[in-house]
Computed example of a mutant assay.
Amino acid sequence: MLEKLLAGDDEASMAALAALRSGATYGVWDTTHPAERHAGVFARRLRRMRLRGVEPLGLERMVQLLREHGRPVRGGLIDSADQKWTFLVFLTEDGSALVACAGVQRWVEPSQA
Rank of each mutant, 00 (worst) to 15 (best):
M1S: 14
M1P: 09
L2A: 10
E3V: 08
E3P: 00
K4T: 13
K4Y: 01
L5N: 02
L5W: 00
L6K: 07
A7T: 13
A7L: 12
G8K: 06
G8C: 03
D9P: 00
D10M: 01
D10Y: 05
D10L: 10
A12W: 06
A12K: 01
M14G: 06
A15H: 05
A16E: 10
A16C: 14
A16L: 09
A16Y: 05
L17C: 10
L17M: 06
A18Y: 04
A19Y: 14
L20N: 05
L20K: 09
L20E: 10
S22R: 09
S22K: 12
G23C: 11
A24I: 15
A24R: 10
T25F: 03
T25I: 10
T25A: 11
G27D: 05
G27F: 04
W29T: 07
W29L: 03
D30I: 10
T31A: 00
T31D: 02
T32M: 03
H33G: 08
H33D: 14
H33V: 14
P34C: 00
P34L: 02
P34E: 06
P34Y: 00
P34Q: 01
A35T: 12
A35K: 07
E36P: 00
E36N: 13
R37T: 12
A39E: 03
G40K: 07
G40E: 14
F42L: 07
F42E: 11
A43Q: 14
A43M: 09
R44I: 04
L46N: 04
R47H: 08
R48E: 15
M49R: 06
L51K: 12
G53Q: 03
V54R: 04
E55F: 08
E55L: 08
P56S: 01
L57W: 04
G58D: 05
G58W: 02
L59G: 00
E60G: 15
R61Y: 01
R61K: 12
M62A: 15
Q64M: 09
Q64G: 07
L66W: 06
H69P: 01
H69T: 00
G70N: 09
R71D: 07
P72Q: 00
P72V: 06
P72Y: 00
G75H: 09
G76K: 04
D79W: 13
S80F: 13
A81V: 13
A81E: 15
D82M: 04
Q83I: 07
K84D: 14
K84I: 09
T86G: 03
T86Q: 12
T86P: 00
T86L: 07
V89P: 11
V89I: 15
V89K: 06
L91E: 07
T92V: 10
T92L: 06
E93L: 05
D94L: 10
D94E: 14
G95S: 10
G95C: 10
G95Q: 08
G95A: 11
S96R: 08
S96Q: 11
V99Q: 00
A100S: 14
A100Y: 06
A100K: 01
A102C: 02
A102L: 05
V104W: 01
Q105T: 10
Q105F: 02
R106Y: 02
W107T: 13
V108Y: 00
P110L: 09
P110N: 05
P110H: 08
S111G: 09
Q112R: 14
A113C: 04
A113N: 07
